[in-house]
Design a binder for these strands. Structure first.
Ligand code: FES
Ligand code: FES
Lengths: 145, 145
DNA sequence: TTTTTCTGTAACCTAAAATGTTACAGATTG
DNA sequence: CAATCTGTAACATTTTAGGTTACAGAAAAA
């Protein structure tokens, strides 16, 4: 498949919106993401349904944040975009009654569950404010670009 | 894409081969994986190139293990199948000069690196013998199936 | 009230990667 | 030589994110 870049893109957009003032239109966000307004509406729509941003139609409308960067974690955005687990184990279903297949799957699933726990822990303790801080700190020189 | 079940399948096949005697043909393995002999050759071929199994052509040929279950870890099989990292962060490349995009990507990559470290640690300390033990212990009753 | 500017969706097409399939070439044994 | 295997090439299929086109509807502005 094409790799899933929604989480990275949404983090980018949210930090952008918070840092550079207020409302942004789908068209402008599409330009900064190098894509199409429809893709933006689709993806930001999921964040709206989870109370992270708000949208307003009509002239002068657009998107704005519903929370501050301090009140949004990476995990919040992740959950808005994908229900269910973050990682998946890639098990096999070739011979469901076979104990060996079940044991193999169980080992892989348990390992992935441990890795996912680690990932969720980091996502849950990383706020978008932290990303903004890193960006401001590291991007000072290149900001004039 | 279709989800990648190669690791799970290969664990299954290797434990099967070790437990149920010696040589197996691509045709027989394909039946137990509910697939095609060509898929089996492709996938087992990667394990052969990494010294985990050996193949022999011609009449009476087939596949057999090059090591014991104790000497193969899940990580060995993983590395034979995929070079490079296990997890990937799904970063964005929409605006490479933007410090915010870079910070977002960096945070995601670092989180995934931590999760991957956990995963590799488990893979590296789990031998196929352990999978065999779990299968034998849990599958006793259903083995008659 | 008409025009302009936005969002919201439906209904496609495209891309990428694993898997499945068909068809042979080549090796090895009997 | 015949039979049985592996090794590959060359497709077709499946899945899911992303991209595109085309409108409908809402709201401000004129
Ligand atoms: S383009 Fe606006 S923050 Fe990156
Ligand atoms: S089919 Fe042989 S071990 Fe599962």
């Amino acid at each position: 498949m094409k790799s899933d870049g929604r989480l990275a893109r949404m983090l980018h957009v949210l930090v952008h919106m918070a840092l550079l003032g207020g409302k942004e239109t789908s068209e402008r966000i599409a330009q900064m993401l190098n894509t199409n307004p429809v893709v933006v509406r689709r993806t930001l729509g999921a964040l709206r349904d989870n109370g992270i941003v708000e949208s307003e139609g009509g002239r002068g409308g657009g998107w704005k944040m519903s929370k501050t960067l301090d009140d949004i974690t990476v995990l919040d955005v992740q959950r808005a975009l994908h229900k269910g687990t973050i990682l998946s184990a890639g098990v096999s279903h070739d011979h469901p009654s076979c104990p060996v297949e079940r044991a193999s799957n169980a080992v892989l699933e348990s390992a992935h569950a441990a890795a996912e726990a680690k990932l969720r822990e980091i996502y849950a303790t990383t706020t978008l404010a932290e990303i903004a801080r890193i960006a401001v700190a590291s991007g000072g020189e290149q900001a004039a670009n």
